[in-house]
């Protein structure tokens, strides 16, 4: 029996103080993004293309349109935002910097509010990563920035027959270390920017090139609380190079990276409003 006051598991309810806090986060973010020249977009909740961005299609809430074509509720905003701007608005706008404030939905009944940013045609991740730093500073939230590079796990899988991409999803460090390559072991241990040069000096050129990108991103970042995690592999399908997460204890406050849609390289991130709300609420208490 479903009770009158019941809401589905995983859905979100904000009211009073918490709703005000959520609105405050969104307002701070939108003011900073507006000041940095970003335009707002609101995309449809229903989407034909979500399977292109979600690794596990079972996470999608699927329904059908009037012609019985499969569609799903938006589980990720990036692909739809980029597609709509490029294909639908392409001739009507030259704007490349966009942000959205809208929730995503995953099976069975999970809602997640996000503030997202896409800078289309931009290759430098620091341009958007520093926006998260600015937003968090304004909200007085201190987080740890993790910098990774999706190319490194991909290159390592090509280099070592014994490695699979799943080893990186599960961070099987014992397997990496047992390969007994000095540079690979140092790569596993790499955590701080001061250690990068030492690894770059002995790593194969292809790996050293990718490490250099991580180092440069670290140097361009306007915050000193960062760690490197070169063996980390993101679950999202589209990130293909530099990637970052903003973490506090067990929560992820934001994540973003570089991705390609067709031939166009872009950078973007999403801030997880619900996790931030919870943290700010705790702090207030």
């Amino acid at each position: 029996m479903i009770l009158e006051h019941e809401i589905p598991n995983g859905s979100k309810l904000y009211f009073g103080k918490s709703a005000k806090l959520k609105r405050h986060i969104e307002q701070v973010a939108s003011e900073i993004l507006d000041a940095n020249g970003y335009e707002e977009i609101v995309t449809p909740i229903f989407s034909y293309h979500q399977h292109k961005s979600i690794a596990d299609e079972r996470e999608l809430i699927r329904i059908n349109d009037e012609k019985n074509n499969a569609l799903s509720l938006r589980a990720d905003s990036t692909i739809d935002v980029v597609r709509i701007i490029e294909k639908r608005l392409g001739h009507n706008t030259k704007e490349k910097k966009w942000f959205y404030i809208q929730p995503v939905f995953t099976y069975p009944t999970t809602e997640q509010y996000q503030v997202g940013v896409e800078f289309m045609g931009e290759k430098n991740l620091s341009s958007v990563m520093n926006l998260t730093v600015e937003i968090f500073e304004k909200l007085e939230v201190k987080s740890l920035i993790q910098i990774s590079n999706m190319k490194i796990p991909q290159l390592l899988v090509e280099m070592f027959d014994a490695l699979e991409i799943d080893d990186f999803r599960h961070i099987n460090i014992d397997k990496f270390i047992n390969l007994k390559e000095e540079w690979l072991t140092k790569l596993v241990y790499l955590q701080y920017i001061e250690q990068v040069d030492e690894v770059m000096a002995i790593a194969p050129k292809a790996i050293a090139d990718e490490l250099l990108k991580m180092k440069e991103l670290c140097e361009q970042m306007q915050c000193d609380n960062a760690v490197l995690a070169p063996m980390y592999y993101a679950k999202m399908l589209y990130y293909d190079e530099l990637y970052f997460r903003s973490i506090v204890e067990n929560e992820v406050y934001a994540r973003g990276g570089r991705y390609k849609n067709g031939e166009l390289t872009s950078v973007g991130f999403a801030i997880y409003t619900d996790a931030l709300c919870e943290a700010l609420e705790k702090e207030e208490k």
Binding site: L144, I171, V188, I247, N250, V252
Partner: peptide, 17 residues
């Protein structure tokens, strides 16, 4: 290990490992 602990406290986690 916890995934975020592994990232944030990597030196301590790998030391005991």
């Amino acid at each position: 290990a916890n995934k975020n602990s592994y990232i944030a406290k990597k030196d301590e986690v790998l030391d005991i490992y």
